[in-house]
Simulated assay, not measured.
Amino acid sequence: MTNERRVLVHPNRAALAASVAARFITTTVDILHEQGEVNVVLAGGSVAMEVLEAVNASAARDTIDWDLVTFWWGDERWVPKNHPDRNELQARTALLDHISVPPENIHPFAASDEGVDLDDAVANYAALLESRSIDGTDLPRFDITLLGVGPDGHIASLFPHQPGIREHSRSVLAVRNSPKPPSERLSLSRPALNSSRCVWMVLAGPDKASALGLALAGASRDEVPVAGIKGRRYTNFFVDQEAAAEVPENLTASTF
């Protein structure tokens, strides 16, 4: 099923995080009612972590049956398990350590100090994803994928003019030449991200305006990787006013 991208503009960063958190809770409850389980893909970034913090702070947080929610990651920095830059650690601090999700429902990428090399970590995660497939593909049925977007338009660890954004067959990639430190990372591929039912991209600040404007104006995914991201049913950009500065008015919907 194809879908159109929607840009939902919020008055400020705090309102953005609260709105996405509320939508996450209601959408998760709805999907659980429909199919009995939910697979969520998380990524890093300060705004995405603020969304998870807002989910944790919400009075409606435990309307979700967390026993039925499984968490995956869109990308990870190749750093030790307890490194503060690790996306997993940030997500646990923001939300996962505060809810009743079973440990076996949390599937982080391997860390650099866990006895495997980067290629083994890629192979292991790809095998885990395939083992949870229910429809003969190499992926679980991703339902909600929550992503940040870099000022250069990168998504997960898929960067402009790097081979990762052009990958079309593998589900998991090793990144060894990231233009942002650390240079080594793991990432889901663009097809894996696009397999999600709902892709939600969260952007705040004036430094994101150019990338978002270019993506929606038809830039190539090689130039602006976020331009190549589109969910199976819904693709939403949740932004604050500053990030929306270069988006055509006909594509935006105000939330205030």
Rank of each mutant, 00 (worst) to 15 (best):
L214G: 12
M201V: 11
L139T: 05
M1E: 14
P160N: 08
A211Y: 06
N12T: 10
E76L: 03
L68S: 13
A123C: 09
T137F: 01
H168W: 13
A219V: 06
W200G: 10
A219Y: 05
P103L: 06
V122H: 08
T27M: 13
T137V: 06
N39Y: 03
S46C: 00
S131Q: 06
S46A: 12
E4V: 08
V69G: 10
S46E: 02
A243G: 12
A94S: 10
P160S: 02
S189C: 04
G153F: 07
E114D: 07
L173Y: 04
N177P: 00
H168Y: 10
D67T: 13
P84Y: 02
L89E: 03
V40M: 02
P179H: 03
A243F: 11
V47F: 01
E167L: 01
I155G: 04
E249K: 14
E50R: 11
H107S: 09
R132E: 02
N177T: 10
D240F: 12
A126E: 07
T93D: 12
D138A: 08
R13K: 13
A18Q: 15
Q35A: 09
W72G: 01
Y234K: 15
V7I: 13
N105G: 04
R6T: 12
T70K: 11
L16K: 13
A204P: 14
D119F: 03
D119L: 09
T235I: 05
R5Y: 01
W78H: 00
P103F: 08
N39V: 07
S254E: 08
V224Q: 01
V116T: 12
S183A: 10
P140K: 07
R132P: 06
A192C: 01
E223D: 10
L128Y: 04
Y234A: 15
G218D: 08
K180H: 02
I106F: 09
D120N: 09
V101Q: 05
S19C: 14
N82I: 00
N105M: 02
T252I: 13
R77I: 04
T26K: 15
L214T: 11
A121G: 03
A127P: 01
L173W: 02
V226M: 08
H168I: 12
P248E: 02
A59N: 03
P151Q: 10
H83W: 05
R232H: 09
N250F: 14
E223R: 07
P151S: 12
R6F: 15
E34K: 13
D117M: 08
F237Y: 14
D120P: 00
V247I: 09
L147V: 03
E167T: 00
A94M: 07
D138V: 05
S100V: 11
A227G: 07
S171A: 12
L68Q: 13
L139A: 01
T27F: 13
T26F: 13
E104R: 15
S183Y: 01
A43E: 06
D138G: 07
D85I: 05
N56S: 14
E50T: 10
